Amino acid sequence: MAVIELVDGGKQAMKTTWIILRLSLLSLLFSFPAPAQTASTGALTGEITDFNGAVVGGVQVTTINEATGEKRDVVSQENGIYVVALLLPGSYRLEFTKRGFKSSVKAGLQINVTETKRLDVQLEVGSVEEKVVVVSESELLQTESPALGNVTNHESVVNLPLVTRNYTQIVTLSPGISAGVTNAAALGRGSSGESQGSFRVHGASGADNNFQMNGVGINDLQASGFLSGGVAVPNPDAIQEFKVQTGLYDASYGRNAGAVVDVVTRSGGNNFHGTVFEFLRNDAERHTQAESIRVHAWRTNQERQALVLRLVSGHAPDQWRRRWRDQQLLLTGVHR
């Protein structure tokens, strides 16, 4: 009888041990923090301390998008750490407030896609109505991730020469990328976007590149050149920025062993603004060359005009497009 009770007790102890082990594994799994940024957003983190270097918890951190006025509020933890996740790329104004301390304000903080910027703040003792405005500060570095890569902003996209209006021609601005010379006589958007970009990163195959736009995959899975069309290539004026990650990026971006190209398109703001341009390619503008090597495509397929007018006021985009035989009219309006 005693032997039976001993065996039953051993089974019960073993069962209890397995339950505890499983619960421990589950708690360990869910204890890992969720990614603060995604393929279409960035994030901000930092530590808040007082004048003596002691951490300050319970500080209200308000982030304000300077283009749209959108506000996000978080509270710093007891260890002084704060995290503002899933921020759309753009310029932000930050306000740090807590009773017993002067408010601290930082404006013009740039958040980039896929990056987590770090901003440490030191609060001064005083009334919360008093404000300390940070006017100038060294540029924030991306120190929260070992990922290698480079961000190309809107100004670079629209001002650098793009012979076929294709942003993939300037991905080589990031180190570690090799690509062939762009074919200036290619039709449409050229050959740069075909077969996953037609460029190589650290010796990997060009088919291993991964393209995402606003967090959605836009890969050319067939990868058969002009037959499958290549990756999606938006109008350069519609691109806010793009980042090419070339190595050490985390598994959330992983698909293949090549580069990860994350494109973010422009969104609306609270102010009206617009651009007007004309993009014309005509054989009359070419250098004189022999009749035997004249490219007929320059006269018939590459001659076009484009007019873009963008009126922005709010957040929801509406797009209209009209195509004519010799020119293209693209109107992009954003309203409330």
Score class of each variant (00 low, 15 high):
residue 94 L to G: 04
residue 44 L to V: 03
residue 95 E to C: 05
residue 16 T to D: 14
residue 79 N to R: 01
residue 13 A to S: 09
residue 91 S to Q: 10
residue 58 G to S: 13
residue 64 I to V: 14
residue 27 S to H: 13
residue 43 A to K: 02
residue 10 G to L: 15
residue 69 G to P: 03
residue 95 E to S: 12
residue 12 Q to R: 14
residue 33 P to W: 11
residue 46 G to Y: 05
residue 17 T to L: 15
residue 99 R to L: 10
residue 106 K to I: 08
residue 50 D to P: 00
residue 36 A to L: 15
residue 67 A to M: 02
residue 70 E to W: 09
residue 102 K to G: 05
residue 104 S to K: 15
residue 60 Q to E: 12
residue 26 L to G: 02
residue 29 L to K: 02
residue 84 V to E: 13
residue 40 S to G: 08
residue 52 N to L: 13
residue 104 S to T: 15
residue 50 D to H: 07
residue 99 R to W: 06
residue 35 P to S: 13
residue 100 G to R: 09
residue 65 N to I: 12
residue 83 V to L: 13
residue 85 A to S: 15
residue 29 L to W: 02
residue 72 R to A: 10
residue 46 G to E: 04
residue 11 K to L: 15
residue 90 G to K: 06
residue 104 S to Q: 14
residue 47 E to A: 09
residue 69 G to K: 05
residue 53 G to K: 03
residue 28 L to Y: 06
residue 37 Q to L: 02
residue 89 P to S: 12
residue 21 L to K: 03
residue 101 F to W: 06
residue 83 V to S: 04
residue 61 V to S: 07
residue 61 V to A: 11
residue 95 E to R: 11
residue 74 V to H: 02
residue 72 R to I: 15
residue 46 G to N: 04
residue 45 T to F: 12
residue 95 E to V: 14
residue 36 A to F: 12
residue 17 T to Q: 15
residue 72 R to K: 14
residue 38 T to F: 08
residue 92 Y to V: 02
residue 15 K to H: 09
residue 44 L to Y: 00
residue 105 V to P: 00
residue 44 L to M: 08
residue 55 V to S: 13
residue 68 T to N: 09
residue 94 L to S: 00
residue 52 N to R: 10
residue 20 I to G: 11
residue 71 K to R: 13
residue 91 S to H: 02
residue 24 S to Q: 06
residue 34 A to G: 05
residue 53 G to N: 02
residue 87 L to Q: 05
residue 100 G to Q: 12
residue 61 V to K: 04
residue 32 F to D: 03
residue 64 I to A: 04
residue 89 P to T: 11
residue 71 K to I: 11
residue 25 L to F: 15
residue 18 W to Y: 12
residue 58 G to E: 12
residue 38 T to Q: 08
residue 66 E to H: 03
residue 58 G to L: 13
residue 55 V to A: 14
residue 82 Y to T: 03
residue 102 K to E: 13
residue 51 F to W: 09
residue 12 Q to D: 13
residue 12 Q to A: 15
residue 18 W to D: 12
residue 30 F to K: 01
residue 48 I to E: 00
residue 57 G to D: 10
residue 59 V to E: 09
residue 54 A to M: 12
residue 73 D to T: 11
residue 59 V to L: 10
residue 106 K to Q: 05
residue 74 V to K: 03
